[in-house]
Simulated assay, not measured.
Amino acid sequence: MTEQQIEIQLTAEKKQKPAFDSLEFGKNFTDHMFIMDYTKGQGWHDPRIVPYQPLTIDPASMVFHYGQTVFEGLKAYLTKEGEVLLFRPQKNMERLNRSNERLCIPQIDEELALSALKRLIQVDRDWVPNVEGTSLYIRPFIIATEPYLGVAPSKRYQFMIILSPVGAYYKEGINPVKIAVESEYVRAAIGGTGDAKTAGNYAGSLKAQELAEADGYSQVLWLDGKEHRYIEEVGSMNIFFKINGEVVTPVLNGSILQGVTRDSIIHLLKHWEIPVSEKKISIDEIYEAHKQGLLEEAFGTGTAAVISPIGELFWKDEKLSINGGKTGELSKKLYDTLTGIQLGTVEDPFGWTVKVKEENPHLVKNS
């Protein structure tokens, strides 16, 4: 199946675009979407780009009842030269298939999925925002659509991609956020689905998030599900600490999501010859490092916010101020470098960015 075999149906009535200088995250969606179906015995079939529209789906569809669904998140960026760049999109497609494996969803053709993503962006290219700090958020996802109330893998699925022009994920931007260490609820456990990007992981995190926000905190710091001692993630992001000159991040253990931004940060730090290690990190170690004045910086990493500095941790009724509540020098350098690579303003020594070619008018057509 090739790019040219993707059927394209253009919308007859384009939407009014939002003001790109006042975008919220995930509120607006482009004119078109990509859909591909899976039927057991037939495989994935009928890839198509169609006008953005509501789904017609049976109430008994298994996704509603047993949560068999996975998703991804990545971005497209508009350079000063007017080129559209993707950042390591192949890594997202690889992770989507790892999530598929865990949720018993059939593997997708990663190259076809990436081609479909590029074609969709070509069709809706004028939705890529051109204001500083904005981007086009890309959401690929798969849902189980077989109408059957039985606990078993579905025999039918839909793979879709939707696009959304976005501003900053956190209103604080690159400014530090306050984080509450979660002492009751658990995000995931080893052997569970923590290393898959599936909806249930996020639904299960909402209660703790809601309570933290009520107390004035932006997110929660998740501890492990067994001993409730070892640090795993912060909100829906991976986390890093700079302690006495060394950067440390929790080692991937089966319950931590393998973040693309996380991997990119580790590559950058090694490239700069800054000591970085992946290991089990207890909250007690962080508390002790803070007490001794060795906790220099902390920050979350993820596609949506890129880098989110942490200015305060709240644990056991004690507020731990980090770097005086200010953005650390390393956090700022990582943010500027990574966003610079994504926007094409900083040299990309790793070959991470992928250019979306200009639209070929012969390929974009009404079907």
Rank of each mutant, 00 (worst) to 15 (best):
residue 2 T to Q: 14
residue 2 T to V: 07
residue 3 E to G: 10
residue 5 Q to V: 02
residue 13 E to L: 13
residue 14 K to T: 11
residue 16 Q to E: 15
residue 16 Q to T: 13
residue 29 F to L: 13
residue 33 M to P: 15
residue 39 T to F: 14
residue 42 Q to E: 07
residue 46 D to E: 06
residue 47 P to G: 04
residue 51 P to D: 05
residue 54 P to A: 03
residue 56 T to I: 06
residue 59 P to I: 01
residue 61 S to R: 04
residue 63 V to G: 12
residue 70 V to T: 11
residue 70 V to D: 00
residue 73 G to R: 11
residue 73 G to H: 14
residue 75 K to S: 00
residue 81 E to S: 09
residue 83 E to P: 15
residue 85 L to N: 05
residue 85 L to A: 03
residue 86 L to T: 03
residue 86 L to S: 02
residue 87 F to S: 09
residue 89 P to T: 06
residue 94 E to C: 06
residue 95 R to A: 07
residue 96 L to F: 14
residue 97 N to I: 10
residue 98 R to H: 11
residue 103 L to G: 00
residue 109 D to C: 01
residue 111 E to F: 00
residue 111 E to K: 05
residue 112 L to C: 03
residue 122 Q to L: 03
residue 125 R to D: 05
residue 129 P to K: 01
residue 131 V to R: 11
residue 132 E to P: 03
residue 135 S to A: 12
residue 138 I to S: 01
residue 138 I to C: 11
residue 140 P to H: 14
residue 141 F to M: 14
residue 143 I to F: 15
residue 143 I to K: 08
residue 149 L to D: 10
residue 150 G to E: 15
residue 151 V to R: 14
residue 153 P to Q: 07
residue 157 Y to L: 07
residue 157 Y to I: 02
residue 161 I to G: 15
residue 163 L to G: 13
residue 167 G to Q: 00
residue 168 A to S: 14
residue 171 K to F: 10
residue 176 P to F: 05
residue 180 A to I: 01
residue 181 V to G: 06
residue 184 E to Y: 12
residue 187 R to I: 02
residue 188 A to I: 01
residue 191 G to V: 02
residue 192 G to H: 07
residue 195 D to A: 08
residue 196 A to Q: 05
residue 197 K to E: 08
residue 202 Y to S: 08
residue 206 L to H: 11
residue 207 K to W: 14
residue 211 L to T: 02
residue 216 G to C: 02
residue 217 Y to G: 06
residue 219 Q to I: 02
residue 224 D to M: 02
residue 227 E to F: 11
residue 228 H to N: 12
residue 234 V to Q: 01
residue 239 I to G: 00
residue 243 I to K: 08
residue 245 G to H: 14
residue 255 S to L: 05
residue 257 L to P: 15
residue 260 V to N: 07
residue 265 I to W: 12
residue 266 I to T: 07
residue 274 I to H: 11
residue 275 P to M: 02
residue 280 K to R: 08
residue 280 K to D: 03
residue 281 I to F: 00
residue 281 I to Q: 00
residue 284 D to E: 06
residue 285 E to K: 08
residue 287 Y to H: 07
residue 290 H to L: 05
residue 292 Q to H: 14
residue 296 E to I: 05
residue 303 T to D: 15
residue 304 A to K: 02
residue 305 A to S: 15
residue 306 V to A: 12
residue 307 I to V: 09
residue 307 I to P: 00
residue 309 P to C: 05
residue 309 P to A: 03
residue 312 E to H: 12
residue 314 F to V: 04
residue 314 F to E: 08
residue 317 D to I: 02
residue 319 K to V: 10
residue 329 E to K: 11
residue 330 L to I: 05
residue 335 Y to C: 01
residue 335 Y to H: 12
residue 338 L to N: 04
residue 341 I to C: 04
residue 345 T to R: 08
residue 346 V to A: 11
residue 347 E to K: 07
residue 352 W to A: 05
residue 355 K to T: 04
residue 356 V to K: 04
residue 357 K to W: 03
residue 358 E to Q: 12
residue 358 E to C: 06
residue 359 E to Y: 05
residue 361 P to K: 09
residue 364 V to R: 13
residue 365 K to V: 08
residue 367 S to D: 06
